[in-house]
Design a protein around this nucleic acid. Structure first.
Lengths: 189, 189
DNA sequence: CCTACCGATCGGTAGG
DNA sequence: CCTACCGATCGGTAGG
């Protein structure tokens, strides 16, 4: 008999739930007790998978990074060749990802970044690494697309998309994505 | 004898500290016990000023709003007349405010917005009101400046500035403000 | 404004 | 993986 969902108790299943919880409650509000009861485990049973809260937070960030790559970057790489087409597809799929409410609490990275940008340590470092990787990917594709100033273009594309996400999360305002697309259309003619 | 600083224990002095604490620890991480000990009060002494943690959070947001208006909006109104000049000054002063590290944990609003956008209630409502007031102010001045599409312009200006702030906070990267200014220069020629 | 306290929950450990 | 527990801290209250 095939199981319909991933077997509960697995590290993978725990992290799936952890990413969702962290997107609404924050990485600090992601408590071991709450996560354990959601997964039907004892606190110490769940604790044993990670060894400390900080390790849980780091594992959660790395799981979110894998999900982002799998949902945004990889499909675009499979369906496009390098150049303007790929940059365009990357930005479009990024906006679709933000608009699609993949996480209950909105973009995991926006939340994690705001929460930990002022708290030095390994958690902030991982959030920084994940964000830097995405900005670098945008810049690389902007370069391959022949942009005059790929660094500047990557910054503006990311800012417009992130701005739309912030307004959507706070106001429930889907119009913000149209505004972002309008701004992006001017940048990527 | 004039007192050098505001008398401690005052609601005003408490809220000043509360805004700073919330900018690094978040509005949820702003605990009554921590704030009380910072102010040299007992927990229940501080508690009595507000009546509940939620009321403290709301008072903190409203204090941050008054500070923002006093530091960004009012000086611009005093030094400019309505029109392109005022819009330009508003955006410039906003960027200076973000770059000036007024709060230890970076922009209070960016942090509060990311933290509470997924938690319905009066706290989120106040964060929303404050953000909406600022976007409306930008749009009004964009309109007075004769912009073709004031709503779109206000969105893009805000997104570029907020994007710079996010990158600055996470990477300590002042270059982001230059990038925002470059993007804004194209929007406000 | 204070001391003293409440029940709940936090991260984490002991021992199995 | 479990039960049972630790000290610390949370928001909040009683009583003065």
């Amino acid at each position: 008999m095939a199981t319909k969902t991933k077997p509960p108790g697995t590290r993978e299943a725990i992290l799936e739930r952890a990413v969702d919880l962290a997107s609404t409650e924050g990485l600090e509000g992601l408590t071991i007790g709450r996560l354990a009861s959601d997964m039907g485990l004892s606190k110490s049973g769940l604790f044993g998978h990670f060894g400390s809260k900080e390790e849980l937070q780091i594992a959660t960030i790395e799981h979110a990074a894998r999900r982002f790559v799998g949902e945004v970057v990889e499909p675009v790489y499979r369906s496009t060749v390098e150049g303007p087409e790929r940059l365009r597809a990357l930005v479009d799929r990024y906006l679709d990802h933000l608009e699609g409410e993949v996480f209950p609490g909105g973009c995991f990275w926006a939340a994690a970044s705001a929460e930990f940008d002022g708290r030095p340590g390994p958690v902030r470092d991982r959030v920084r690494d994940g964000t830097a990787a995405w900005l670098a990917e945008l810049e690389r594709q902007a370069d391959a697309a022949g942009a005059e100033d790929p660094h500047q273009l990557a910054f503006e594309l990311h800012a417009l998309a992130a701005g739309a996400n912030q307004r959507f999360q706070l106001f429930g305002d889907r119009e913000a994505f149209d505004q972002a697309r309008r701004g992006i259309a001017r940048l990527l003619p």
